[in-house]
């Protein structure tokens, strides 16, 4: 539908711009607040333009300590978050690729049952099974470790289901051609299946990375050692200082920093991500 009505163009652009402003405003305020001294925000009026304390706040937060009772610098927590997020992402992708591969391409007893059992775990996210999972992890002596942070989260019914759909759409003749060409199960997996699900993997990577990065409850529960604190959970801890004022400027800077890696991943993988969601070249 192509129409040439100037006022309509104007109205729709105005609406879109308003939408952008609405979404961007909190980010803008956070950015502005991080450049004012700690007292400015608490005093009741909200500044709308940059102050002059920016460099100092950001420097402290990033390299010395995040403040508000959290003594580790943001870069260190960022590293922890990154390890956890990447661990979860790669773990999830690897394990669901393998399980989807088994379910789609191999005939074994109770194949469908296996699939439905995996599917049913959709109803059991971490929050539901948190107590028993905690106990298992504690018994395995995995509290305060990267393994403990990632391992319980990497089983994924959603990703398995997605890869299953992707594999099912691969024509049977292609599988047979590979068999005739002497590709065994591993060769087939690496030479044919992986390249063909490249875009799906990329799309999932983005989604899962953000999921992993934003994990809050689980790390909060199983880490008691500063060395394993992740960024997202630390923000919450920064808010719950009991003595004295909350240093909003530091919190805002930390929040903004916490947003950066997911944004980077989304921007970096945008092309593949959209391709993975939209088309399937098979």
């Amino acid at each position: 539908m192509i129409e040439n009505r100037p006022w309509l163009t104007f109205a729709s652009h105005a609406t879109l711009l308003m939408g952008i402003a609405l979404v961007a405003l909190p980010v803008w305020m956070a950015l502005v607040a991080s450049t004012h001294p700690a007292s400015a925000f608490g005093a009741g009026h909200i500044p709308l333009w940059f102050g002059d304390a920016g460099a100092e706040t950001w420097g402290t937060v990033l390299f010395e300590k995040a403040g508000n009772g959290v003594d580790t610098p943001v870069w260190f927590m960022m590293l922890n978050s990154l390890i956890m997020a990447l661990g979860i992402t790669f773990g999830k992708i690897a394990i669901s690729l393998l399980s989807a591969y088994a379910i789609v391409f191999f005939r074994f007893p109770f194949r469908n049952l296996c699939f439905w059992i995996i599917f049913m775990t959709l109803m059991l996210p971490v929050e539901v099974r948190i107590v028993p999972t905690y106990e298992v992890v504690a018994n395995l002596d995995l509290l305060n470790s990267y393994t403990g942070l990632t391992l319980p989260l990497i089983a994924s019914a959603t990703a398995t289901f997605l890869f299953r759909q992707c594999f099912l759409s691969i024509p049977g003749e292609l599988v047979e051609a590979a068999r005739m060409d002497g590709a065994g199960p591993w060769r087939f997996f690496f030479d044919i299946l992986l390249p063909l699900s490249r875009t799906n993997i990329a799309a999932l990577f983005v989604i899962l990375f953000i999921y992993g990065w934003n994990q809050y409850l689980w790390p909060l529960l199983i880490t008691t050692d500063d060395a394993y604190y992740t960024l997202v959970m630390s923000i919450k801890r920064m808010l719950s200082v009991t003595d004295g004022d909350i240093a909003w400027n530091q919190i805002m800077a930390t929040t903004l920093l916490a947003m950066l890696p997911p944004v980077a991943v989304v921007i970096g993988m945008q092309k593949l991500f959209v391709k993975g969601l939209v088309d399937s070249e098979k």
């Binding site: 024509p171 003749e173 292609l174 047979e176 051609a177 590979a178 068999r179 005739m180 060409d181 002497g182 590709a183 044919i192 390249p195 063909l196 490249r198 070249e281 098979k282």
Partner: peptide, 19 residues
């Protein structure tokens, strides 16, 4: 196994590896 029979097959839809 098909690969051990020393035969080659041409499929109706060609079944070329798209990537």
């Amino acid at each position: 196994e098909p690969a051990e029979r020393d035969i080659a097959m041409v499929f109706q839809n060609y079944a070329l590896y798209p990537h």
